[in-house]
Simulated assay, not measured.
Amino acid sequence: MIVYLRDVLDALDAATDSTVFVFSKKSERVLLFFEGSLADELEKNLTLEDALNDSDSYIPLPREYEIHEYQIMENFVNCLEDEDEARELLNSMHGKGAFRRFKEKVSLLSLEDRWYNHREEAYEKIAVEWCVKNGIKVIKYVE
C-alpha cells in the first residue's frame, strides 16, 4: 500500500468532529466522510459505519482529538528561547478560546513562521508514524 504524505497531512489538518478520513486499502486513497456521508463518488454506497467496521479494507486516520493540538502548542512554547514570549503564549492557552488566543498571540509576537513550521513537523511525524504502524509506504513528493 502507498499513500502520498500530502494527502495524509491534508486529512489530519482538516479533521474535525464532522469530518472523518479513512484510507482505502483497495484504491490507496484517502476518503473523506462529512457528517457521516462519503464526500465523493470514489466508492459508491460506502457509509462511514461500513468503512469503520471493515478493517480489512479501510483504515481510519487519526481524528481531531488523537492529534493533540494542545500538546503541539505546549511543545512549541517549550522550544522558545525568549522567556517573555513563552510566558505570554502559555498564558493565552488557558480556558475557553485557548486555540484562538494562542494563534492571535503567535501573530502579535511575529512567530507565525516558526509556529507553522513546528506544527507542520509535528503533523508530519504523526502522519508518518500512522503510515508505518499501518504498513503503508509514504511518498513524500509528487514527481
Rank of each mutant, 00 (worst) to 15 (best):
F21N: 01
G36M: 09
L89C: 10
M1A: 07
S92D: 02
E120G: 10
G95M: 09
I139V: 09
D13V: 14
R119P: 10
S18L: 15
R119W: 15
P60M: 02
I136L: 01
D10K: 11
P62T: 10
C79W: 04
D40P: 02
L12I: 10
C131F: 02
D13N: 11
P60G: 02
L5R: 00
L46G: 05
K140Y: 04
L5F: 00
A86M: 03
K137I: 12
N78V: 04
K140Q: 04
E129S: 14
G97L: 12
L61D: 01
L31H: 03
A51P: 02
S37P: 01
H94V: 13
N91V: 09
P62S: 10
F33K: 02
E43A: 11
L9S: 01
M93G: 08
L32E: 04
R87E: 13
Y65E: 14
E112C: 00
M1N: 05
D113K: 13
L111S: 06
V22Y: 03
A98V: 07
L12W: 03
E124P: 09
E64W: 14
G95I: 13
G97C: 13
D17G: 12
F21A: 12
L90V: 06
K103P: 08
M73P: 09
E121G: 11
E143F: 07
V128S: 06
D40Y: 03
E112A: 06
D40V: 07
L42F: 09
L90C: 06
C131L: 01
L61H: 00
F34K: 12
F23C: 03
S37C: 06
V142N: 13
F99E: 15
A98Q: 11
S18F: 13
L108T: 12
M73W: 06
E112K: 11
A122R: 04
V22I: 10
